[in-house]
Amino acid sequence: MIEVNEALTRKVMGLAKLKLSDGEVTTFTAQLQGILNYIDQLSRVDVQGVGSMTHPFDEPTPFREDVVCPSPVDTEGRPKTLLSAPDVLDGGYKVPSIL
């Protein structure tokens, strides 16, 4: 059975690009330990020769024609995708400089 400690929680937190407060790390560590203890029951199931089921959909994937479609625009001709952008510049997404 895995032992969840705060170091493991912080490592996963980094992988997930999440920042937790010290209090959240403590709380989550205890909760994750409880949840993983519960999930550990799966180790008792005999899965020898059992295939993974990642999806319940067993029909063949129907393919569409590869056709270029114009992006939707608003009444003034602006791309609708930019309407909810946190910041825009010259018709594109503006992001903070990271270099």
């Binding site: 493991l8 994750l32 799966l42 199931v45 899965v47 059992v50 993974s52 089921m53």
Partner: peptide
Amino acid sequence: ILGTFALSSGYYDAYYRRACQVRRL
């Protein structure tokens, strides 16, 4: 956090993959 853990290197087979096998059952 829990999902990132289940998919992370070293834990994938024991957690995510095994869960998908039991899902088949």
